[in-house]
Amino acid sequence: MNLILISLLTLLIVGALSAIILFFVSKKFEVFEDPRINVVEAALPLANCGACGFPGCRGFANACVKADTLENLICPVGGRPTMEKVAAILGKTAPEVSPLIAVVRCGGTCELRPRSNQYDGVSSCAIAHNLYGGETGCSWGCLGLGDCVVSCKFDAIYINPETLLPEVDEEKCTSCGACVKACPKLIIELRKKGPASHRIFVNCINEDKGAVSKKACSVSCIGCSKCSKECAFDAITIKNNLAYIDSEKCTLCGKCVDVCPTTAIVEINK
């Protein structure tokens, strides 16, 4: 009985002492932190993807609280709704952003771009890209080994087993840009999602001469510049045998799509 009492008392005293010490130490060394940071952080998607340019969502929240305006501070994952929430918390105004989406600019499916050899190294685009141009005659196009799939934190990109090309899930893509960085061929681009996801882009980045690229892939851009002549808004530029559509200027009229002889220009969700 005595033994139990003594042990209970000792534990009690030790516990109380520690609690007092902890209390004073925590008071003494307390670091002031703006409580709004926590609130803002809670409003963010908490994916910690780093696409905003800050180290994780907390870093972004911190920056939002400190900044005078929310200009240049955009959470690409949450987009406008999230920024509006953040703006409401902080009493600032949210910047206008148009939603972006990752676009894979290669249309060379198995049938359209025949394989001439078989890669047998590590299944990594980066390593294959270092070794050689790829399994097809086109050294610009998608290697299909899925570095973008690995890099995506949102399961938004996957390789279609029939075409061996990556496809982006429009619902899931948060335009964080991880796949853009992961692709060694620089095929993936963040583009304006467009009204109701309606968008037009050149589905090729091959800068070889027309004849060469046509031989390797039947849907390659051959740089014929029919589209740029057709475009009434100066949205299409031809550089290095390759057309590029500026999504800022493009009005989605769709004329370029009709004139393209190789169907390299695609229109989605018309």
């Binding site: 070794l131 050689y132 141009g133 790829g134 050294s139 070889d208």
Partner: peptide, 8 residues
């Protein structure tokens, strides 16, 4: 010309 690695 396209060399052994497939690049120009």
């Amino acid at each position: 010309y396209i060399d052994a690695s497939g690049y120009k």
